[in-house]
Structures are given as C-alpha cells and as structure tokens.
Write a protein that binds this DNA or RNA. Sequence first.
DNA 1: CTATTATATGCAACAGTTTGCATATCCACC
DNA 2: GGTGGATATGCAAACTGTTGCATATAATAG
Lengths: 209, 209
Amino acid sequence: MQLFAYGRPRITLYTHSTRNRPMALNHAIMTALLDDRLSGYELTKSFDTSLGFFWKASHQQIYKALRDLEKQGLLESEDVPQAGKPDKVIYGLTDAGREALEEWVLGESRVTESKDDMFVKFYNLSPDNAAHLREELAERRRQDAARLALYQRIRQRNYAEPTALPVRRQGIYLALLAGIRHCETRLAWAEEADALLAAVTPAQSVAAR
Amino acid sequence: MQLFAYGRPRITLYTHSTRNRPMALNHAIMTALLDDRLSGYELTKSFDTSLGFFWKASHQQIYKALRDLEKQGLLESEDVPQAGKPDKVIYGLTDAGREALEEWVLGESRVTESKDDMFVKFYNLSPDNAAHLREELAERRRQDAARLALYQRIRQRNYAEPTALPVRRQGIYLALLAGIRHCETRLAWAEEADALLAAVTPAQSVAAR
DNA sequence: CTATTATATGCAACAGTTTGCATATCCACC
DNA sequence: GGTGGATATGCAAACTGTTGCATATAATAG
C-alpha cells in the first residue's frame, strides 16, 4: 500500500522565507517612539502626519501592536492619570526594543506596492466615464496639493539645511523629500491626464445634445 | 433592571460605509479580460507587467477570484485541453460582467497607500546602518531602472502618439505615464539620497580605522 | 440643556493577502 | 537518468488590515 500516493516528500529550503520577519507596523511604532514616550492616542495622530506618509494605521491596530510589543518586552508602559481627560497609557522603548529596531533596519525590506483603484479605472476609460474620472482626479489633486503644502512647510521649518542636521534627522529629511517629490510628480501627471481627459469628455456632451 | 447599562443605543447612519464595495482585485481581473479571454496562468503573468504596476496579485488569489466571479455570473469559463501542456481553463467577461465593471468605474475609488519598510528605516538612519541603506537603495534603483526601461519600450512601441489612439487606449497610456513618472522620480530621489548617505557613511570607515 | 467634538482605549467580525504546500506534464540541459 | 524550469491549478493556515461597535469623561458650541 502506498501512503504517499503523489510524488515524493520534498525538502524545502526556505531560502526566501519571510515568516520570521514581523510586520513593519511594529517597527514603525518603535521608530516613532525613538525620541518620545507616547500614548496610543498620540501615536495614532502622529501617524497621520510624519510617518503616516509611508505607513497608515488605525487606532485599533496601534493599540493592539503596543500591547503585543510590551508583552515581548520591547516596550514598557506607564499609566498616567489625567485630570479633565481620560487616563492614558504611555509607552517607551526598552533597551531590548532599541536593539531589536537596530537589527531590523539591517535586514531586508518588504515592499507592499500601493494599490490604487483609480489607475485600474483608467484602463476602462470611455466617453461615458471620462467626466467621472476627471472628478476623481480633481479630488486627488486637492489631496496631493494639501499634503505637499504641509510637507513643504515642515521642510522649510525643520529641514531647510539638511547637511547641517544630525545624522538621523538627515534620514527623516530624505523620507520627507521622497514624499514631496512623489506629490509633485502626481500633481504634474494629473495636469497632463486632465488635459487628455478634457479632450475625451466633450465628445459626450456633444453626443448628449 | 437596566439591560442597556451603558448609554443609549445609537443610530448609525453608515454614511461612509465601504462594506458593499467589493475589492478591486476582482475588477482588475475583469479589466484585464476586457479584450482577451485568458487563463488564470496567463492573467498571473500579465499582472506582472501591465496592470501589475498598480495591482499585484498571486496566482492563488487570481484563481480564487476567477472561480468567485464565475459563480457570480460575471465571467464565463471554457476548458481547453492542450497537447504537451496541462489543460487550462480560459475565462471571458459575460455581458453582466461588462456592465458590473462599467458601473464600478463610476463609483468611489479606494486607495491603499503603499507601505514601504525602507522609508521607515530612513527614520532610523545612523552611521551604523548607512552603508546597509545605501545597498538597499542601490537594489531599488536597479529595479526601478529595469521597470522604467520596460515601460519606456512599451510606450515607444504602442503609445508613441497618444492623441491618435482610441479612447480606452488613451486611458491605459495615462496609467503607463504615471508609472514612468513614478519610476523617474524615485530614481532621481535615490541619487540625491545616495549622495547624502555617502556623506554619512565615511564617518564610520574613519572611525573603524 | 443638548449635540457635537476631542480625548482615550478596546473587542470582534470580516475582508484581503501571503506563505507553505500539493499535484501534474513536458522540455531542455548536463 | 536526474535536476531544474515553464506550464497549469488548487487548498489551507497564518497574518494583516478594515469596519462596526462599545465605553467613558469633559469641554465647547448652539
């Protein structure tokens, strides 16, 4: 009787396994705690700006990650009673946390490519939906413009002379610069795209006359 | 006795609910099937190039999505026996599928921001890891350069004169252009970043002397 | 006085993605 | 004769992220 009916058992080498690489949200949180001790609430808000350009997270995710990281001994917490506000729990990096973070930086990076419906929609362009796509595009432009303005302000205030900054701040500057360039590129593209869409749209209004 | 101990029951309006918006992978697949009838295997490969810049999917995801979409009547399938190769199943859009796709385009878009470890790592820049980050950056440059070259080739071959193209092809051109601009921007940024990192790295080799 | 907003934390269900594994054929290369 | 790679499809578990809901205090706006 043959128990292993199909082929022979295989030996797998796990050469490119990512199993042991924990999700980067944890590391993003630890990064945010490098300088400051913060509560989950404060982290949630700070994720909306600075680091948030590269990593979005909901408060549910963040609170859970904080508890997990504390269980692993990478963070320590402190209960802070407050008057006039609900009590909060602030978290800080432990030495083990700092070490784990440094080690993580030296590992391989994982990229989760962005997924954007809008581009898939462009593959479906027709006179029927061109007007709608222009609207979506206009909304994006507003968002990108707002974000760009914010990042430009931050740059001028805190990163005007990058080479004069301490090393770590130079790294943050580069990330910020990537964000700025990204917004600029999208805005320039949106202008080109809008011009082309505008040439498509009138066909509909003519047909609808 | 008070059964609803905490506060009063709330009425929620679901004004910005996204519950009924199905994931875009399904729509990306349907989009890829607009012109051609393809098998899961072929779709997986085509996702690696064209649409893949905006939407990555594994073969496991794609095969499952295809079966789901067929169950919903949005796709139809046909078994194709092959000589010298395993048989395959090719899928095509049904009329219902085409309609559903057109309707989806007119809805709101969802953006899943890209998540890239590398930028989080830049927030941790130090002389200890600057060399490692330069390596990662160099690897990204190779990838971006390769992708850019591919997209440039596609552009020259098929989209040299965008305004002369049929409407839908113009939409694809715009998506392609976004991909090109994106790669170019990242490459330009990587150059700047590398220059700054280079100024950080030597400090280590001097210290290590 | 009531509604809203900000502060502050959390659970549970669900949706979506990744990873590991499984199966099978045929071709090319060494 | 075996190894590796391309073709072709699929299951199941683990992981990650989103959504809806729950709870509580206090300030502010109307």
